[in-house]
C-alpha cells in the first residue's frame, strides 16, 4: 500500500486549492446539506403517516423504490435536465437520504405501545402534544438508527459530486484514477472511511444524549 499521498504534508495545506482539508470541508458541506434537506422532507411525511396511519403504502414503497435508485444514474439525469452545479448533486443525494428517514419515522411511530398513546390522549393532550411529547420521544431510538444509516450512505455516496466537476473527497478518487495515481485514490478512500466512522461515533454520542434513559432502562 502506498500512503505517500495521504502523508504528504503539502496535501494537508488548507490554503492550497484541492488540498485534502478543502476537499473534506466541501464533502462535509454536501453531506450536511443533503441530510438537512432530506430530513426536512422525510421526517414530517414519515411522522404524519405514522401518526395518522394514512398512506402507509407511500412509506413502504418510497423506502423500497428509493433504495433501488442508482445515485450516479440519477445524478447524470439531473445534470442533463438542470445543467452542471450544486443543485443536481443535492437532489441526487437527498433522494438517497429520504427513504431511511421516512421509513424509520413511520416504523418508529407504528411500533409504539398504543396503550401509552391512548393514555396520552386520555389525560388531555392535543394531537400535536401527543406527537411531540410522547410519540416522537418514544420513537427516537428507531428514528436515530434510520438517520445514522442515511448519514453513512450519504458520506460514502457524496463522492459522486466529483463526477460532475464539483469538489468533495470524490476528487481524490476520480482524479487519481484519471492519472493512474493509486496513492491518491487510496488517500481518498481512507479519508472517506475515517469520516464515516467519526460521523457515526458523533451520532452515537448524540443518541445517548437525546434519548431518554427510560427507554433503555430495564428492571
Amino acid at each position: 500500500m502506498n500512503l505517500s499521498y495521504l502523508f504528504d504534508a503539502a496535501h494537508w495545506d488548507f490554503s492550497t486549492s484541492g488540498s485534502i482539508p478543502q476537499l473534506l470541508l466541501s464533502h462535509i458541506w454536501y453531506v450536511f446539506l443533503a441530510l438537512v434537506i432530506g430530513t426536512a422532507i422525510a421526517l414530517p411525511i414519515g411522522l404524519y403517516i405514522g401518526h395518522t396511519g394514512r398512506g402507509s403504502f407511500i412509506a413502504i414503497n418510497a423506502g423500497n423504490a428509493g433504495r433501488s435508485l442508482p445515485t450516479l444514474g440519477l445524478l447524470m439525469l439531473m445534470v442533463t435536465l438542470l445543467g452542471l452545479g450544486l443543485l443536481p448533486v443535492l437532489i441526487a443525494l437527498t433522494v438517497l437520504v429520504i427513504p431511511p428517514i421516512l421509513t424509520s419515522a413511520y416504523a418508529g411511530l407504528r411500533s409504539l405501545d398504543q396503550r401509552v398513546v391512548d393514555a396520552a390522549r386520555g389525560v388531555g393532550m392535543r394531537p400535536w402534544q401527543v406527537l411531540t411529547r410522547v410519540e416522537l420521544p418514544m420513537a427516537l431510538p428507531v428514528l436515530m438508527s434510520g438517520f445514522r444509516s442515511a448519514a453513512l450512505q450519504v458520506v460514502a455516496t457524496a463522492t459522486v459530486a466529483a463526477a460532475v466537476g464539483l469538489g468533495g473527497l470524490g476528487r481524490l478518487l476520480i482524479d487519481g484514477l484519471a492519472v493512474n495515481d493509486y496513492s491518491r485514490v487510496l488517500a481518498g478512500a481512507i479519508v472517506v472511511a475515517v469520516l464515516a466512522v467519526l460521523l457515526d461515533l458523533i451520532l452515537a454520542l448524540a443518541q445517548r444524549w437525546i434519548i431518554s434513559p427510560g427507554l433503555r432502562a430495564s428492571r
Binding site: 396503550r115 393514555a119 418514544m138 431518554s212 427510560g214 427507554l215
Partner: peptide, 12 residues
Amino acid sequence: YVIQHAGLFPHR
C-alpha cells in the same frame, strides 16, 4: 384516567 397496565410514559 387510569388504564390497565397503567400506560405510563416510558421516557419520563
